[in-house]
Design a protein around this nucleic acid. Structure first.
Length: 865
RNA sequence: GGGAUUUUAGCUCAGUUGGCUAGAGCGCACGAUUCACAUUCGUGAGGUCACAGGUUCAAGCCCUGUAAAUCCCACCA
């Protein structure tokens, strides 16, 4: 016997995965590189039936977390479904160098060894991090395998692979030539701890308590939360409509603690309602002030250096940290009587999303992408509906974001990343040559062109700049050989990176290829803990997907994490749902074990025919189930598909069909239907379905490359009759349960009068209700009437028991009466009869007849008691 | 300030173009028991669909408003 009494995932999963991988089942059937089999000069792949999906690349040197677990469950289910449907499926795995994250980890390791980044040059650091990552790599790839990801491993793309860098450089060069790249000295969010700038999107704003100080600049009082920046003030702004200050616009005031004077200017930025209505302007250290400075052509005086110490300030404050300087400034202002008040406020402060350090708006020369055209093109294609979003409201959200997008800072001061291929002229005498030139030779620090020396910019690209090429590089798309796998069929990723990643892939895809990079976008939400709280290390509520896989199996995890989840929603997750997934796997295992047992007894017919109502019924239910799953996959309704499979397999197939097959056996049909449910469940539970497939005596090949089931043949009238049997059985069971006493099912014979359906299914009804016998009534009604309108059924119970059932019977009559009243009320409404669809009115009339007949029968029974 | 989302059973969620008595899983109560499965089987209790109006023959679903919660963007001198 190949089937143990329960399914033990750990015995099978590793071997099964290895078998899949070595068989080549993960690889697309249609080649990914150009072919011209018929020699007509055309790439024969281009009209092929392909299905492509890329994996959002997990951090190459990290471990998978619960969000990855969800990602794989979603993407791999899609992949396997489309593979079973016969498409040439390409699920492309990836690994992310995770520029900033990995750098932070590495720098910590470096510090632990007593070193700092400043001891090495950029190339050395790059090489060192490369080795560091190489050492840890593989962990997450093993974990992807444990989750069952059926991806094409040979095509794994690492974000620092040569073809990625090539493509990024090609795009950058094109943008540079198109005038979309510019070098700007602008305010950027700068993390003093990590010594790097961030894009707006990487900044985390948090509400914090702070102090608002009021400082006298001559007669004008200004409010500020950052008194130490006053040395960088180059103006005071008042609102042009503010009557209080009308007369002093254009005048100069003395800047405290210095011997400078600054002008009073009129600008809308000053809010008359806030504070005193006058605001100090520090263009070098505040984003709003920077813009005011642009409008009024103000000087930008940087007073806080990148290391967080004071520069360009009076001797006394030079070299202090910003915090020390603030204290000193406040003290000095107070001594001079210029500090006129302070109050506590709550304001939002920008933090580094990694270390929580307060970010310092800092003037820096950086590379920027002019996003106007990119965004406009993306909006145009999005508004045409070229990409379908799940959930669909994200389309609007994304368009709204793109409409307000500001230029994109792509420079990062982190060695671990793709070097920016720009070189600055070294000797300024050669005035005819441009200051900056593009060159791919980023492995060199210095190059020479036309006799002029150039030095490479030390910075690297923002990882999102290279990641935005992901669909292009993963599918090996090139100008010369566009891939049939581009655009991707779907981009599945987290809703939290809609702006950072999805938006940029769309802009970049359109810019490089002229086509949107994917046809559909499915966004998943956060996986929250069982109480709906965000998982975090500090809260200690983090669930490790690998623990659950080890404990319950990969399939159980996948089924569990998909349960109750819908697109874009942050939803709770608990071990319970994994347990219920595990139970389903075991149920399926035992279903198979049972059927194999029957097959072993011998019967070698291959083709099936249905022979009774239960068999017709299960065929109908399985067909409905397949329809439902196909529709659910089209609409990305994963949880619903799982739910449908769960109830079809358990509540219908096992509880009714298999139970009925204990009376009437149809071996070919058992085989056929089992294959159907195995294949249908395979996308969600790949391991157990494959393990069963391999253990069954008659199946061939591997289920991963099987064919999606075709519909079953059945007699619909007969199938519907089985519903009547189900109703009879349920009602008898319910009545038996409601009778006083225990073990009622064993005691009382079921009597039927004039009922061919029961007569034809005596053994089945007997087995399902567990009554000792099902006999014809033969005479006057006796015992307890079963509450069915269209069947004359009695439970042969003694008078005494019938009497004890009186209360339950009364309650039953009342409840049916209430339903009847509701139906009658509906029919009393002439508008309903007139305007509702005919079939509904007819159904209502039928229902009324049925209820009336049932009530009169029950009432007769009651009077007999 | 702008935008989005959510509110249905004790918990987590379905409920697709409005249409029969609003469903599932878990939990709970009661009952069963060796013959595929206790990771089992059966039966049941539990809902003013956040609230108030409106449209409609008919509203959990559509419209208006209110409340609560969550998230994103911008801003907070």
């Amino acid at each position: 016997m190949k089937f143990a009494s329960s399914y033990e995932p750990n015995q099978y999963e590793a071997d099964i995965y290895a078998a899949w991988e070595t068989s080549g089942a993960f690889d697309p059937v249609i080649p990914t590189v150009p072919v011209d089999d018929d020699g007509n000069g055309h790439d024969d792949r281009l009209n092929a039936n392909t299905y492509s999906i890329v994996m959002p690349p997990p951090n190459a040197n990290g471990n998978l977390h619960i969000g990855h677990g969800l990602t794989i469950a979603l993407e791999d289910s899609l992949t396997r479904y489309h593979r079973l449907k016969g498409q040439s499926t390409w699920y492309i795995p990836g690994a992310d160098h995770a520029g900033f994250e990995t750098w932070v980890v590495y720098e910590k390791a470096l510090e632990a060894q007593g070193h700092t980044r400043f001891e090495y040059d950029r190339n050395e650091l790059y090489a060192r991090v490369w080795d560091f990552v190489a050492m840890q790599r593989g962990n997450m790839e093993l974990q992807l395998r444990a989750l069952g990801a059926s991806c094409a491993w040979d095509d794994l793309t690492f974000t620092l692979d040569e073809n990625v860098i090539d493509r990024v450089y090609t795009t950058f060069e094109k943008m540079w030539n198109d005038g979309m790249i510019y070098r700007g000295k602008k305010l950027v969010n700068f993390c003093p701890k990590h010594q790097t700038a961030f894009a707006d999107i990487e900044v985390e704003h948090k509400d914090e308590k702070g102090t608002l100080w009021e400082i006298a600049y001559d007669d004008i009082i200004v409010s500020t939360t950052r008194p130490e920046t006053l040395f960088g003030d180059t103006a005071i702004a008042v609102n042009p409509n503010d009557a209080r200050y009308k007369d002093i616009i254009g005048k100069e005031v003395h800047l405290p603690l210095t011997d400078r004077t600054i002008p009073i200017i009129a600008d809308e930025h000053a809010d008359p309602e806030y504070g005193t209505g006058a605001v100090k302007i520090t263009p070098a250290h505040d984003f709003d002030d920077f813009e005011v400075g642009e409008r009024h052509n103000l000087e930008r005086i940087q007073v806080i250096a990148e290391d967080g110490t004071m520069i360009n300030v009076p001797e006394k404050y030079l070299g202090l940290t910003a915090a020390e300087c603030r204290k000193q400034v406040l003290k000095d202002l107070k001594d001079q009587g210029l500090l006129r008040g302070e109050k506590q406020i709550v304001h939002s402060v920008a933090h580094c999303y990694k270390c929580g350090t307060v970010l310092e708006p800092t003037l820096k020369e950086q590379w920027f992408v002019d996003v106007k055209k990119l965004a406009a093109t993306a909006i145009e294609h999005l508004e045409k509906g070229e990409i379908k979003f799940y959930p669909e409201n994200k389309q609007k959200v994304l368009i709204n974001y793109l409409k307000n997008l500001k230029d994109w800072n792509i420079s990062r001061q982190i060695p671990w990343g793709i070097a920016i291929p720009m070189f600055r002229k070294a000797n300024s005498e050669a005035t005819d040559e441009p200051d900056w030139i593009f060159d791919r030779r980023t492995d060199l620090k210095e190059i020479e062109k036309a006799g002029v020396k150039y030095v490479r910019d030390e910075d690297t690209f923002d990882t999102w700049f290279s990641s935005s090429h992901w669909p292009i590089v993963c599918t090996d798309w090139t100008e010369e050989n566009p891939s049939p796998y581009y655009p991707l069929n779907v981009m599945e990723t987290g809703a939290d990176i809609l702006f950072a990643w999805v938006a940029r892939m769309i802009m970049m895809g359109l810019y490089v290829t002229g086509e949107v990079p994917f046809k559909e976008v499915y966004l998943h939400g956060l996986v929250l803990d069982a109480h709906g709280k965000k998982m975090s290390k500090s809260k200690g509520n983090v669930i490790n997907p690998m623990d659950l896989v080890a404990k319950y199996g990969s399939d159980a995890f996948r089924l569990g994490i998909l349960r109750g989840r819908s697109a874009g929603m942050n939803q709770a997750f608990s071990e319970n749902s994994v347990i219920s997934g595990r139970n389903l796997c075991n149920k399926l295992w035992n279903i198979s074990r049972f059927i194999q047992g029957i097959v072993d007894e011998g019967d070698s017919l291959d083709s099936y025919t249905t022979l009774n109502q239960g068999e017709d019924w299960i065929c109908r239910e399985l067909n409905d189930c397949l329809d439902q799953i196909e529709a659910d996959f089209e609409a990305y309704r994963f949880a619903e598909a799982v739910e449908t499979l769960y109830s079809t397999i358990w509540d219908k197939y096992a509880d009714w069909f298999l139970e009925s097959q204990k009376i009437y056996r149809n071996v070919p049909l058992l085989k056929k239907t089992l294959e159907t449910i195995l294949v249908a469940l395979h996308p969600f539970a790949p391991f157990v379905t494959e393990a069963i497939w391999q253990n069954l005596s008659w199946t061939e090949g591997m289920i991963i490359t099987a064919k999606w089931p075709t519909r079953l043949e059945y007699d619909p009238i007969s199938a519907e009759q089985f519903e009547n049997i189900r109703t009879i059985v349920s009602e008898v069971r319910g009545t038996l349960q409601a009778l006083s006493g225990t073990n009622n099912a064993k005691k009382y014979t079921l009597l039927y009068d004039n009922d061919s359906l029961v007569e034809d299914n005596l053994l089945l009804v007997k087995a399902l209700t567990k009554v000792p016998a099902v006999d014809p009534l033969n005479g006057a009604p006796r015992g307890l009437r079963v509450a069915l309108a269209n069947h004359e059924l009695y439970l042969d119970v003694p008078e005494k028991v019938v009497k004890e059932y009186k209360d339950a019977l009364t309650e039953k009559i009342l409840s049916v009466g209430r339903e009847l009243d509701a139906l009658n009320a509906r029919m009393m409404n002439p508008n309903y009869v007139e305007r509702a669809p005919e079939h509904l009115v007819k159904e209502t009339i039928d229902a009324i007849k049925e209820k009336e007949s049932l009530i009169s029968r029950l009432k007769t029974q009651l009077t007999l008691i």
